[in-house]
């Protein structure tokens, strides 16, 4: 990659940069948000754990959704192609009868 830029005559400061981390807001059903910065390759389960600790809830009772889909154990911001200021929704399980 470096050679490619050199050959193309692109200076170091002009190279496109992919941030190593992303800023993500975890937003609850009341619209309250908690902002986290997380490495793009880190597991989102770390963020989920940190959120549960921050709000004092049992992690197992919370559901974390990105674009309406549940976040799975092995998901990372990179894997989900997340970008800065993206929002993860968090919800308690709902029931009805």
């Amino acid at each position: 990659m470096c050679d490619t830029f050199k050959r193309a005559g692109i200076r170091e400061e002009d190279k496109p940069r992919v941030a190593a981390s992303v800023k993500i807001t975890v937003c609850d059903q009341m619209g309250r948000g908690v902002i986290f910065r997380i490495k793009r390759v880190a597991l989102l389960s770390k963020l989920q754990h940190a959120y549960a600790c921050t709000v004092g809830q049992d992690e197992a009772s919370l559901k974390f959704l990105y674009d309406g889909q549940r976040i799975r154990d092995g998901d990372t911001p990179e894997g989900l192609q997340m970008s800065d200021d993206d929002v993860i929704d968090v919800a308690l399980e709902h029931v009805g009868g």
């Binding site: 937003c27 059903q29 619209g31 959704l65 674009d67 309406g68 889909q69 970008s83 993206d86 929002v87 929704d89 919800a91 709902h94």
Partner: peptide, 29 residues
Amino acid sequence: ENIAFWKFLVNGYQKRAEGTYQEARHFLR
């Protein structure tokens, strides 16, 4: 749509004054 769809609509409605529904990536779906 799945259950999350309604949550998106409620969220958009709550923020309707800010106009985020029309712009934000969060409401893409």
